[in-house]
Design a binder for these strands. Sequence first.
DNA 1: ACTCCTCGTGCATTCGTATGCGTAGAATGC
DNA 2: GCATTCTACGCATACGAATGCACGAGGAGT
Lengths: 351, 351
Amino acid sequence: MALDDSASSAKPPGRVTSREVAAAAGVHQSTVSRALRGDSRISQATREQVEQAARQLGYVPNSSARSLRSQRTGIVGVMVPNIDNAYYPQMLSDINREFAAAGYSMVLIVDPPHRRSDVSRLGSLLDASVDGLLILSATLDSGMPAVLHARGVPIVLGVRSVPGLDVDIMEPDNFSAGRAVAQHLLDLGHSEVAAAMGPEITSTTKHRLLGIQSVLAGTLPPERILHGQYSHEAGYAACNRLLRGADVPTAIIAGNDVIAIGIMDAARQLGVAIPDELSVVGFDDIQMASWHSFRLTTVDMGTAAIAEQSARRLVERIQHADGPKRHELFPASLTVRGTTTAPRKGPLTVK
Amino acid sequence: MALDDSASSAKPPGRVTSREVAAAAGVHQSTVSRALRGDSRISQATREQVEQAARQLGYVPNSSARSLRSQRTGIVGVMVPNIDNAYYPQMLSDINREFAAAGYSMVLIVDPPHRRSDVSRLGSLLDASVDGLLILSATLDSGMPAVLHARGVPIVLGVRSVPGLDVDIMEPDNFSAGRAVAQHLLDLGHSEVAAAMGPEITSTTKHRLLGIQSVLAGTLPPERILHGQYSHEAGYAACNRLLRGADVPTAIIAGNDVIAIGIMDAARQLGVAIPDELSVVGFDDIQMASWHSFRLTTVDMGTAAIAEQSARRLVERIQHADGPKRHELFPASLTVRGTTTAPRKGPLTVK
DNA sequence: ACTCCTCGTGCATTCGTATGCGTAGAATGC
DNA sequence: GCATTCTACGCATACGAATGCACGAGGAGT
């Protein structure tokens, strides 16, 4: 029988502390701490007493106090450029699973393309509130990762890389993917190709484009390469521009699947048949791409693996700040579905 | 000139503390705290000195220490049932904007439908690591919100409500929305209607269904009401079942847009023309619903407003734990697009 | 029977910031 | 010229858990 009988009755306004548990169990606060954390020096009997007292009082260790003392928060930050497109939520789902399994909570940091170099917001990343940072929103010109790295924040770059930085990077083999897509269109006989890519300052766009151009050097003139956001709207707009201009392409390479779907959406509205009148290819192979409404030919960039591995890598990096950095390239594989075929013969008539 | 000149040179392994800033500025630690927090009692001159020292040393206040002392973390939790469907990411985007504007970080808590009543995971919500919780994943039978509320955690329920709980609730007018959808189909002349709804234990499904049944009492027999997850796959599966069975409906009411799109996907694969051979309606009016590829007739449930307001409400609730709770019903309005029309005459032939 | 060691626990301090209270010095009043 | 009120800051402590060290009790060894 415990001395303090106010177990399940009225509890004080403040939360229960380890000291109160100690009083209830008739031991010292330090013993409570040790017993609950599984310190082997505490006897079985005492441990059980403490555990029971803790349970009865509904004790939950205060995370701020624990963090202050132990210098770790159990929270990781995940930076994404946006969240209302399909790509990142899908990744976040996998990433979240990994972090949760490793005992970490995840704060979401939406880091939109505009208002970059907003260093003021860096404060909340340097205040030791996160144990590490998984950055999916890096741009080629972004100095933010370097600053964080210099300050000793464990970081991992996922999907998008930044050159000249000694950090872990897990990215898809964009160059090969670009080559594969281009070769596929070349094989089908396309000679009038356009590209509606993402932002030039992303490694994904840059390297995919380099791969594409390495194959399509002749047939993809710079003026048929468009850049915009990685968004449905951007794809939609690009398609309208390309199909309404002179010199209508027979195939469009989209910077990613989200853009590709925007393109298809616009094409359908214009009454342009896909793939008979226009071939479309994307990158990423997001779930939506396999939906029957789209059946998009695209490239599996190993996104699920990147999500999983980059999360795991960050956990390792947090535990061993030193150790060699790893830069991994995930293989890409073309997935041919229903949006690519041989080019139409004549010109295109738009509705 | 400062005494300590190690400003931008080698810094000690540990992060810079307010005490070091104090030493550099020649003042006491408490003065640093006050100066940086904008305490009016600090003179302008001292404040500037402190600010300069802080800047030179790259001082960032430790968030754990601050939280421990001030009993607030500046972090809110947002619970969602999943994140790889389109609905929640879209909401999260709005929610994130509000919280960020109010100075809060957001930890994402994915709370899948299975492994409910997993009270062990509650620990991380009771340890004072979050100042409040926005719950978008509540089910009718979930005891979790009640437990949290009893423990004094500020919570707001968004989208999904739980009966008999004295907390803030911001939900759409599901009943009216259900009525509107049913009336729309009735007006078009449908008499063979089916419903592919979400999980029965969600308030959204329950109330939408009640609304639907209040209009379609006769023409919607229980055996044509299916329940599944709020997912593309569930819609896809439901459509296959409904169109392949006897007694093929002329219209399907989907529990939400994600299900509706799954239905459309299956219908297209089966060679069933929408809307001529099958009408489809959804709920939510997610962005995708307006894409030309879908042009889905659906109901705007005021989701953006709910996202925004529920986030704001939580911030208020954190600041004033007492104060009357608000239960708001957001108006729903039918948005007719291209997936509903008068019913076909004869039976359906499936590819 | 005495020393030595192990085991289990208590004590005191630490993490870094915020804040109530006290106080020196300047400013004001008469 | 002395008492008084501000002003601006320092001092000390609290927040709650983790942990190095000390120490008492009990057992093993000789």
